[in-house]
Simulated scan of single mutants.
Amino acid sequence: MHDLPLVIFTILSQLLLGGFVALWWIDRKKGGISKKTGLLISISFLVLGGISLLVSMLHLGQPLHAYRAILNFGVSWLSREIVFYGAFLGLIALSTWFWYKDDAPKRRAIGWMASFIGVVAIFSSAKIYMIPAIPAWDSVNTLFAFFLTSLLLGPLYVAACLAIKRDSAVNISGIIIPVLFVSAIVAVGYFSSLNAGLPEAVEAAKLTFGHVFFWARIATFLAASGLLLLSYVNSKWRSVQIYSAAFAILLASESLGRFLFYETAIHL
């Protein structure tokens, strides 16, 4: 469980990006989100962001010296991740303030900048792992995996929150189902490339297939897909219970997948 802090940090940071962009986009295009609901969701982003930062520091040997990491911004993707993620959280805080002030034009303007910075932060996070020393990580799949997590968890989290508050009905299934389909295609391509790659990559695939978490991830992925498909074809299934259950199941699925990402990595 040494990598558990990294699992939590990467999942939460990616959820935050997808969730912030979803909230901003719905507010900008659809409207109908009350000040109270938007403020509560935005505050929840800040809480999750704070938790992600605290948990990430547990992975460091000397957490009190974490600030030194930004000194290598010019050459280190880790430094860039820290700087851009910190800036992203700062912009979320500013957006939260504008929700509190009920200043729609300013919070929508901040959304453009925050979304861009958040994308760069997740890109930087993925690049940390794309290293030749670990063949299973050194591919575009790592980028796909990180951004697909954002697209799956973030919008569904916001949709569940809106459903709970009965504030603005969003048929999020029409967005999530295509992402689920792409995720499945990417996974098939990824494991095919591992089996055709270096011995270390082949071994990583074997370890993954032999792990109980892999099959639990498949089961949870299919269960969440089934719920969202039902909600897509029948509006009666677009409820608090369905969106919340689908989010919880997908969160478990993505967390299991991220655990396997770290656990089955084989160095050259």
Rank of each mutant, 00 (worst) to 15 (best):
L46P: 07
A248M: 12
T96E: 06
A169V: 14
L229D: 01
F214A: 05
A246H: 08
T10F: 01
A121I: 08
I122D: 00
A169G: 08
A216E: 09
G189M: 05
A196N: 15
I175Q: 04
G111A: 06
V186K: 02
G18N: 14
H59V: 06
L53S: 04
A204S: 15
F191S: 01
M130P: 05
H2M: 14
L60Q: 06
A136V: 12
L39C: 07
Y232T: 01
I131R: 07
E254W: 14
I33T: 13
R108S: 07
V83G: 02
Y157C: 04
A22M: 09
T37R: 04
A126P: 03
L143N: 05
L40S: 13
G197E: 08
G257T: 04
G38R: 01
P199W: 02
V120G: 03
L58S: 07
S79E: 11
L143H: 09
L250A: 05
A121C: 05
L229C: 09
A69T: 13
D27F: 08
I51G: 10
H211R: 10
I26F: 09
K30V: 12
L268A: 03
E81H: 05
A93L: 15
A87S: 14
R108G: 02
N195F: 11
A224V: 07
I26W: 06
L162R: 05
S56V: 11
S95P: 12
L222K: 07
P155D: 05
R108E: 10
I185T: 13
W99T: 03
A184Y: 04
L58T: 11
A114N: 10
A246C: 08
N171C: 13
E200D: 10
V120D: 04
I70D: 04
